[in-house]
Amino acid sequence: MSIITEMKQLSSETMAPVYFLYGTERYLIEQFLQKASEALFAGEEGEMNDIRLRLQDTPLGEVVEEAETVPFFSSRKLVVIQDFYLATSQKVATKLEHDIPALEAYLDSPAQETVLVVVAPYEKLDERKKITKKLKKQTSAIDVNPFDEKETFAWMEAIAKQEGVAIEQDA
C-alpha cells in the first residue's frame, strides 16, 4: 500500500496491529510515526505508551515482550522497532541474540491493544529470509522509497489540502 493513502486513512479505529515500513525515505517514516502517535494518543497518554526501540540495542525478545505488555493508563500502545536489519542481508556487529521465532509467533497473533511498527530503512530487503516474507505478507507493509513524479504531486496535494490551500498541477 502507498504511504500517502495509509497516512490519509490513519486513525485509532482503522490502524492495523502491525506495520512494516521499508525503504529509504526517513522523512516519510517519521511523518508516519508522528501521525500514528497522534491518532493513538491524546495529551500525555503517549509519554508512557509510545515506545521507540533500536534493534541494535534491544534483543528482539524484549521488543515482543514490550508489545505484549498492557498499556499504561491508556487503551492503546505504540511500539516501534527502529533499524530492523534482520530483513536485509546486511551484517551488523552486535552481541545481542535475537529471538526471531518470538517475533514470528507475535505476527501470527498480535496484541489487540498494541500497534507494532517495524521500520527497515534500507534500500534492499533480503526476500529469501523467512522473516522478510512473513512481514510483507502478514502485516500492513508500506514501501517508503523515493516517490515518482505522480506520487510526489499526490503527496504535495494532500499536504496542501491539510493546510487548507489549493495547488494547481502546473505549479
Rank of each mutant, 00 (worst) to 15 (best):
D170H: 11
D148T: 06
V70N: 00
L96V: 03
L33R: 03
M15G: 00
E157S: 15
F84I: 03
A160Y: 13
K133Y: 11
G43L: 10
A154N: 14
V18L: 06
E66M: 11
Q82A: 05
K136Q: 15
G46T: 11
L107M: 11
E25Y: 02
I100V: 15
A87F: 09
L28K: 05
T152H: 07
R54M: 06
S109A: 14
T94Y: 09
V70F: 14
L116S: 09
G43T: 11
D143C: 10
L21F: 02
E47V: 12
Y27Q: 01
V119W: 02
A67F: 03
N145S: 14
V118C: 04
A141Y: 09
G46M: 11
T24L: 05
F41A: 11
I142Y: 05
I167Y: 07
T139D: 08
E163Y: 05
P17A: 11
K77Y: 06
Q90D: 10
Q56K: 13
L28E: 01
S140D: 05
K77P: 08
Q162K: 14
N49D: 07
Q169A: 12
D170S: 14
L53K: 11
L60Y: 02
A102C: 00
P110T: 10
V117D: 07
V64G: 04
W155P: 02
D99V: 03
E25T: 04
Q90V: 13
P146T: 02
P59C: 04
E163S: 09
E62H: 11
Y22G: 00
L135H: 14
S75G: 13
L10W: 08
P17Q: 12
G43Q: 12
L96Q: 02
Y85P: 10
E163H: 12
G46V: 10
S74C: 12
L125P: 12
G164D: 09
P121H: 03
L33M: 04
A154I: 10
T69V: 00
Y22E: 09
A171I: 09
K77H: 06
T88V: 12
T152P: 02
Q34Y: 06
T14S: 14
S74V: 08
P59A: 07
Q56N: 03
L21H: 02
E47T: 11
V92P: 04
V64E: 03
V118T: 03
S89W: 01
D148W: 10
A93M: 09
R128A: 13
T139Q: 07
N49L: 09
S74I: 07
L28R: 04
M48C: 08
E127Y: 12
L96K: 01
E151I: 02
A39V: 08
V115H: 05
E127N: 13
S11W: 03
E30M: 01
D50R: 15
D170V: 13
A141T: 09
A87P: 08
I131L: 15
A154Y: 10
S37Y: 00
L107C: 07
V63E: 00
E66S: 13
V92C: 05
Q82N: 10
K124N: 15
A171M: 11
A158W: 08
L21G: 00
A158Y: 06
E168G: 14
L107G: 06
E113K: 06
M156N: 11
E13V: 07
A105V: 06
K161C: 01
E45M: 06
M7L: 03
D126V: 12
R54P: 00
L125S: 10
N49T: 06
V18I: 14
E6R: 04
E104F: 00
